[in-house]
Design a protein around this nucleic acid. Structure first.
Lengths: 177, 177
DNA sequence: GACGCTTTTTGATCTAGGTCAAAGGATGGC
DNA sequence: GCCATCCTTTGACCTAGATCAAAAAGCGTC
């Protein structure tokens, strides 16, 4: 876990609740407002959305990472995302409202929250640039290098949509052809 | 301009400096640490990087938007990005160090800075998802819909790389074939 | 340990979009 | 106004990766 994630857990401990999820448990449904951020302790969570009826993985979160339905958590809109557990998992949960209230009382943690958001921005930027001009082979290689645990635990189809390619292509790429 | 951008200008007025850029002026060079955020008043700025010697546009900023070299501004690393003006432009400039110092003295603005970062995150998320599974045609249509001023002022090649397609493809897509 | 269900692989074909090359159009400097 | 340079279009061809279909491999369950 990064220093930053660690600091977040410490700072926001008073408003964290702990939750245990079984494999295949759904934590959030599209269409609803779900103002929760999950800070994963163990296991594997996934956010996804439907595009023309197809399941597209938007994000994976393993130990030390976080996941939410960003349109809901950041904008309070009904969400386009689903969140589910891909393995038995444990996570700390933060409610958006609790977060705002807590930060009202403890403005000294605003900076930490901003730095965390900046970090998430950088992660997304990396991902976004990788999607723009890299080949299927290269995107796979990057993921294998950066987050091998995802390839180990997530079903191939979920990883393929996360990497913006078909399941068949990922299967072939992985077999090195 | 969004309410948020407006609030940012107000809140950080004491540390803003104004800068005028001529068309084709380079504001930042890759390889250097450049801790400046540009809040565009008028004109058009572009951030780009080189991938195998090819110029790839990472970001455009028109009036009310902002641009920086994120790896430098957020992580203080030598940057992979160049920033240049695509038209005669005006922008307010914030130095990262000034920002941090100012926020030390005015922690009441930390929240605003966080909300602004969250907004940038949502913008990037939109872009990132559009790159993952939309066709060249659809990505072009989205840009035309969301930010027509870019298509109006930026050279085709820069827009094409921003949309993750070749210049020839963008030319054809635009001519509706 | 056989049966169903899900996940992954493999093969055959098709197509969106890339690459290469060249011709037109604009634009700015002098 | 003329030339050089840059930007955009057009055409011909090619390839990465999609789609469709089916076989094979896992794996939970009774």
């Amino acid at each position: 876990m990064s220093q930053l994630s660690h600091d977040i857990l410490q700072a926001f401990a008073p408003i964290l609740t702990q939750r245990t999820m079984a494999k295949n448990e759904r934590l959030h449904e599209a269409g609803r407002v779900g103002n929760r951020l999950y800070l994963v302790e163990s296991g594997l969570l996934r956010a996804y959305y439907l595009l023309d009826g197809r399941d597209v993985t938007a994000h994976f979160a393993t130990a030390g990472e976080s996941v939410t339905a960003p349109d809901s958590f950041l904008r309070c809109q009904p969400s386009r995302y689903y969140i589910e557990a891909l393995a038995d998992s444990q996570a700390y949960v933060i409610e958006r409202q609790d977060l705002e209230d807590y930060l009202d009382r403890h403005p000294e943690y605003e900076r930490l929250a901003r730095l965390y958001t900046e970090d998430l921005y950088m992660d997304l930027l990396r991902r976004s640039e990788s999607m723009t001009f890299l080949s299927a082979q290269e995107r796979y290689a990057n993921l294998l290098n950066d987050r091998p645990e995802i390839l180990e635990f997530a079903p191939l189809g979920h990883v393929a949509s996360y990497l913006g390619m078909s399941q068949e292509t990922l299967s072939r790429v992985r077999a090195e052809r």
